[in-house]
């Protein structure tokens, strides 16, 4: 495998409301920031992740290219997924050996529509979407199947929000309180907040990475695995695909200082900790994680960015980032980063 590293990461100051920016206005500052940090202004490959249903417009990602400077023509691709998968595509592209750098970005404004119902559209269109099964409802089915304890969930939310308050990019959310349910057994605070935001990462291979970064965050393992789409065909009490991806990425081959997990519901953190067999001493989501800021389609990429940032800043030696897609942790991407 060709050595590839994260050498720069930037993200917006995420908001819980629409700041009135178009997608390219949202992205432009973070693209500028990673260009400055990496010292690169052109890239061998560019890949983004976003979802047209968030904006309610087809090919909405195309206009986002205005933020890049796509002339003379650039080599560009897009995934209709969280931008963590755009990073995976860029990593694969760098394995070809003919280009040495890649720009990856993701963005989403959940404030514009109804995220719970937008996420219904990703479901099986014959058996599930016509029932109107919304995002919080299917997550609650998994929480119920897993049977998480209330105190344990509350503690995850409390810790995530406290860490989020210390992260200037995340939302300022109060300690969880209230007895009402969103969909039982989930309370409103078990659900990641509606967030607008964007993030960008620069990847560089081999010597270019060493040249541009003092302490590159080397991707020593990256893998994704998926499960059947129909919820009733799966064991919702665990995440076999996260388990398999974690094993393939080599999570267990060394200590894990920090793990950034794409848990959009508090119980998902418990399932993911088990799937990735994270030791008790691993610090989980020190950024606050998705429960403190969830700019959909950038949230997974931010996990990789945050895990890489701990290495770039010298705070950690080996970190793990997880990203997910699909209902109830259906599809999972695990990245191992090392100094």
């Amino acid at each position: 495998m060709r050595e590839v590293a994260v050498i720069a990461f930037a993200q917006t100051e995420h908001t819980d409301h629409d700041e009135g920016l178009t997608d390219f206005e949202l992205i432009h500052p973070v693209i500028q920031e990673v260009k400055e940090r990496s010292g690169l202004s052109r890239f061998g490959f560019t890949c983004s992740g976003s979802c047209d249903y968030l904006a309610g417009a087809p090919f909405s990602f195309v206009s986002a290219l205005d933020a890049l400077g796509a002339w003379p023509p650039i080599s560009e691709s897009h995934v209709e997924m969280d931008a963590a998968w755009a990073l995976y595509e860029a990593w694969v592209r760098l394995q070809h050996g003919d280009v040495d750098s890649a720009l990856v970005y993701g963005f989403g404004k959940s404030s514009m529509g109804d995220l719970r119902e937008i996420m219904t559209l990703q479901l099986d269109p014959y058996y599930l979407a016509p029932l109107g099964l919304d995002q919080v409802s299917f997550a609650a089915l998994q929480a119920s199947a897993y049977g998480a304890g209330r105190a344990e969930l509350d503690e995850i939310v409390r810790r995530s929000r406290a860490d989020g308050r210390n992260n200037p990019r995340a939302l300022d959310l109060d300690d969880p309180s209230g007895e009402e349910f969103a969909v039982q057994p989930l309370r409103p605070y078990d659900v990641a907040p509606i967030t607008d935001g964007a993030a960008a990462i620069v990847l560089a291979a081999g010597d270019l990475a060493r040249e541009l970064a003092e302490r590159p965050a080397w991707i020593t393992g990256i893998a994704h695995r998926i499960e059947p789409h129909y919820l009733g065909m799966r064991d919702l009490t665990r995440s076999p695909s996260a388990e398999a991806a974690g094993r393939a990425a080599g999570v267990g081959k060394g200590p894990v200082d920090v793990a950034e997990l794409h848990a959009q519901f508090s119980h998902e953190e418990l399932i993911l900790r088990e799937a990735l067999e994270l030791p008790a001493e691993t610090v989980v989501n020190p950024s606050g994680g998705p429960l403190a800021a969830n700019p959909v389609m950038a949230t997974g990429l931010i996990r990789i960015g945050e895990a890489a940032a701990r290495i770039l800043d010298g705070g950690a030696g080996r970190t793990v980032a997880h990203a997910t897609s699909g209902p109830c942790l259906q599809h999972n991407l695990v990245t191992v980063l090392e100094a």
Binding site: R116, L141, S144, A145
Partner: peptide, 20 residues
């Protein structure tokens, strides 16, 4: 397993509280 919806949404199959 089940999850209880106290406030049904417009796309939901029932217009009164129900379980998935």
């Amino acid at each position: 397993s089940w999850a209880w919806v106290e406030s049904p949404r417009k796309g939901h199959p029932l217009d009164r509280p129900f379980a998935w």
